[in-house]
Amino acid sequence: MNGKEFFTNRYRQLGWEFQEATPKQAIRINTTNAKEENIIERLHANGIELEKIPFLENGYWIRNAKVSAGATAEYLLGLYSIQEAAAQIPATQFTRINGKTVLDACAAPGGKTVQLADQMNNTGAITALDVDKHRLKALANHLERCRVSNTAVYNLDARKAPQLNLKFDCILIDAPCSGNYAADKNWFQHRTLADVERNAKLQRDIIAQTAACLNPDGEIIYSTCSLEPEEDELNVDWAIKHLNLQTETVDCPGEKGLTNVFEKRLDASVERCRRIWPGETQGFFICKLKKRGGTT
C-alpha cells in the first residue's frame, strides 16, 4: 500500500484534493540577539528581500535573494534562523513559556529548540533530547551559533525521558514522522502505509512516556509534518482515551483536526487540533494537550 495514487486517494477521502506545493524559504528572527527592524534592513542591504508571514510574530518569507540566506554574517552570528513557516508554529503555542522548565523531546537539528530559547529570552531551562548522536552535533552547533544559554542536551531516546527524573511545565514533541511530499519530492516513491503505522506506534510511545514527565498544569505541544491521520488525529484520539489528556485549542491557520477518519469516529475534541495541508507552507499537524483536571 503505497504510491502517489494510494496516498492522494486517502487525502481525497479526508476531504482534501491533492495539489503540488513548493513551500517558500522562510527565516525566523532571533529577537534575543537582534532587533527585528535592524535585521530586515541589514538583509535588504545584502540583497535579501523579506515578506512578513502574517501568522507568525518573527517569521519572514524570503521573497528574493541575491545571496544564500544561510551564508550571511547575520546568519553566522545567530541573528536569525532558517526555518520553514509551518515548522515555526508549534513552539509558539505554549500559553506561557518564559522562565519555565521545558522539554524538547525530539530536538535535533535544533530549529525549534533555538526558537523556544528565543521565546524564553534564555530564561528558565530547556532539556533537549535526541536519540541520534550524529544529529546532536548539528544541534550543538545551532545552539552555539544562536547563543542559546538555557539548554541542556542529552543523547537520549524520548521514550526514556522519565529516566531524567524531571518534571516539565512545557513539553514539545515534534515527533519523528513520515514527513510529507511538499518537503520531499520523492516522498510518494519511498513511503508506505507500513512506515506510517510504524511511526504512529513510535509516536504513541513517545507521547505516553513524556506525558509521565508533565507537571499537573503543564502543556504538551504535539506536532508532526505528516499528513497521515494515523500519526496525527488518531494518535491524539488515542492519547485522550489512554493517557488522561485533553486537547486545548490551537491558535494558528489551518483546518480543524479531523474527527471522522476513514469512517472511524474520533473524540469530538480532536477538532481543536490544527491540520495544515501543503500550500504556501509544507503540511503540518499541531495539537495542544493538558492533563485532564489540570488548570485551563
Partner: peptide, 21 residues
C-alpha cells in the same frame, strides 16, 4: 560549559551540551 542558575538545578551528569559552550 557555563550554566545559568535554572539549568544548574536540572542538569544531569550525562549531558552532551549545556548552557553556554
Amino acid at each position: 560549559f557555563l550554566l545559568n542558575q535554572n539549568l544548574r538545578k536540572v542538569i544531569r551528569k550525562n549531558f552532551y551540551y549545556a548552557g553556554t559552550y
